[in-house]
Structures are given as structure tokens and as C-alpha cells.
């Protein structure tokens, strides 16, 4: 709560002028028929998403060129608020000229960005974001119909929020894409949990298999782990701690060196590592057949050192104990 929140009822004031324009005059509103498809030499796809019960529903029409997978034309109809009309209109426009696979990369955020007047000012208030998430879902649906892959799978997805029919995958995707941090954000963006609230946390009207609170915690944990490991990978070897260096060396051994040694019935283990005047000394011991192999001190040693130097740092010296 702060100065800017003290005047209420500002929902419509937060819409960009592009949103307003599209609500008043949607250019891609309408339908496409088999006849239209025939004229353009494409295949007609009709996909539905959402339900009137939830307050938003959209129907997307495509004509797709079966040879190139390029979407030749797109139209929409929607039962929904202004944002649903505007975001569906942008979504339909964004489809035209793209292949079905390219369209699958369009996210709710892309649709929202397209509606912005200024690059860093959101086009719609956060609680309206679910309307563009709906765009993302209907695109997935249309693509699955076109590809003939498991439309039924979409229906049998793990549904977290029964009221708004929001799937586990959608919630996880939306958390990742928008870097959501609070349960309230997830509710605003996906609409999951906005109705009977049973799926927010245990103890609601009815027990659920999944709870938004837990999903958010798990996804955030995964994201943190990924970020950490990415950091490690991106980090300069020379600035790592000795434990991190050890892990990095083990990783290269696992990925590059050991698969070859194991093929011959041998292996290698790290006995110790030392840092010495800017270089890193790695002490290895051969196992299995490698232990008695004559090339162990020459060719094999060189190959292991090269692999570590190439993947990590040129100042690594390998010593066989």
C-alpha cells in the first residue's frame, strides 16, 4: 500500500492505448470456413480454450499450408473482457506468416509485450494477465490439433485448478516465464485459485492433488538450483573454490574421459588437488586395466590433461600417482 494504490478503480486506466484500440476495433475478429481454407489451399483448424464459466473463452481459426506448415490466415472469437478481445486479436495477428512450430514459441508475455505502448510499461494490469495466458493455451491446442498429436492429452493433463481448468504444466510454465514469486502473482497470472480457492493450500473446500503454494515452492527451488549450476558452469575455473574445482574436474572426467577408459575396462579416480602458483595440480590414480597400461604415463595422461585444459583451464597439470 502506498500513494499510488490509494485511489481505487484504476483498472481501465492501466490499459495501454493499443489495448483500447484493439477492443474497439479488433482487426482479426471473425471466423474462417472450409471454403476459405479451400480457396487458400490450406487446412482449416479450429481450436477452443477456456470456458464461459471461468469468464473467458476463445476460439481460434487457422488456415495452415500443409506443405510448409505456414499459417496463411488466422481469426478469433472470444467471450471475455476487453483484455481478452485485445490479446486474442494480437495473438491471431502474430500467427499469420509463422509456421506452427514457430507459433508454439509465442508466450503470454509476447502477446502482452506486443500490446505495450512503451517498452517498459505493462499493457495491462497484472490481474488481467490470465487473458493472454489463455492465448498461449489456445495456440498450443491449435498446434496439437494440426499435428494430430494427442489432443486428448491436453484434456487429461494434471489439472490444478478445477474451477478455471488450469493445468500443472501451465502453472509451472507461467511461474518460470514471468519469474513469479508469490502465490498472489500466480493467481493473478493464471486465474488458478481465484475461485473456490481449494487449490491454493491444503484446508480449503475440498482436498486437491496439487496446491499452488507447493508448486510455487518446488518451481522456485528448481529455478534456484538451475541458476546455481548455471553460475557454476559459467564461472571462470581460476576463480572457483577448491571444492568447486574438484566438482568441475569430476564433471569433465565423467563426461569426456571415463566413458573411453571404461570401454577398455579401466577407470580413474581423483586422489587430491592442489593450487600452486596460479596452476592447479590434479593427482589421479588409475583403476582396473589402466593401472598397468604402458600408455598411462604418456598418451593417456596427455589426453586427460588436454581434456581438462580444453574444458576448464589451460593451467591444469595432471599427475599420476
Amino acid at each position: 500500500m502506498a500513494k499510488h494504490d490509494l485511489v481505487g478503480g484504476s483498472l481501465w486506466e492501466q490499459y495501454s492505448s493499443k489495448v483500447t484500440q484493439r477492443v474497439i476495433n479488433p482487426s482479426f475478429m471473425g471466423d474462417l470456413t472450409e471454403e476459405d481454407a479451400e480457396k487458400k489451399g490450406g487446412k482449416l483448424i479450429i481450436a477452443d480454450w477456456g470456458a464461459e464459466v471461468c469468464g473467458d473463452a476463445v476460439r481460434l481459426y487457422w488456415i495452415v499450408d500443409p506443405d510448409t506448415d505456414i499459417i496463411l490466415d488466422a481469426r478469433f472469437k472470444t467471450f471475455g473482457c476487453g483484455t481478452a478481445i485485445a490479446s486474442s486479436d494480437v495473438m491471431a495477428e502474430m500467427c499469420i506468416g509463422k509456421t506452427v512450430d514457430q507459433v508454439l514459441e509465442i508466450t503470454n508475455l509476447d502477446v502482452e509485450r506486443e500490446l505495450r505502448d512503451e517498452a517498459d510499461k505493462p499493457a495491462i494490469p497484472p490481474q488481467k494477465m490470465h487473458c493472454s495466458v489463455m492465448a498461449y493455451d489456445v495456440l498450443k491446442k491449435a498446434a496439437s490439433i494440426y499435428k494430430g498429436v494427442d489432443v486428448s492429452r491436453l484434456e487429461e493433463e494434471d489439472i490444478v485448478c478445477q474451477c478455471a481448468r488450469v493445468s500443472l504444466k501451465t502453472i509451472k510454465d507461467v511461474i518460470r516465464l514471468n519469474d513469479l514469486k508469490t502465490v498472489e502473482d500466480v493467481i493473478h497470472y493464471t486465474k488458478a485459485g481465484a475461485f473456490c480457492k481449494s487449490c491454493i493450500r491444503p484446508g480449503g473446500h475440498e482436498p486437491r492433488k496439487y496446491y499452488i503454494e507447493n508448486i510455487l515452492r518446488e518451481v522456485r527451488m528448481e529455478m534456484e538450483k538451475e541458476e546455481l549450476s548455471q553460475h557454476l558452469e559459467e564461472r571462470d575455473f581460476s576463480s572457483m573454490t577448491l571444492i568447486q574445482k574438484h566438482r568441475a574436474v569430476e564433471k569433465v572426467l565423467d563426461e569426456v574421459v571415463r566413458p573411453i577408459l571404461i570401454l577398455d575396462g579401466g577407470n580413474v579416480e581423483v586422489l587430491d588437488m592442489k593450487e600452486h602458483e596460479g596452476s592447479t595440480e590434479v593427482f589421479l590414480s588409475y583403476l582396473g586395466v589402466c593401472a598397468g597400461c604402458p600408455s598411462g604415463q604418456t598418451f593417456t595422461l596427455k589426453k586427460i590433461e588436454d581434456a581438462l585444459q580444453e574444458n576448464l583451464d589451460s593451467h591444469i597439470r595432471v599427475n599420476i600417482v
Binding site: C81, K128, H188, A194
Partner: peptide, 11 residues
């Protein structure tokens, strides 16, 4: 009274 028009999305 539509859900969409309120801050809370409550029906």
C-alpha cells in the same frame, strides 16, 4: 458484478 472487472477476480 463480473469477476473480470474486480481487483480480486472473485465471481
Amino acid at each position: 458484478g463480473s469477476a473480470c472487472a474486480s481487483e480480486s477476480l472473485e465471481p
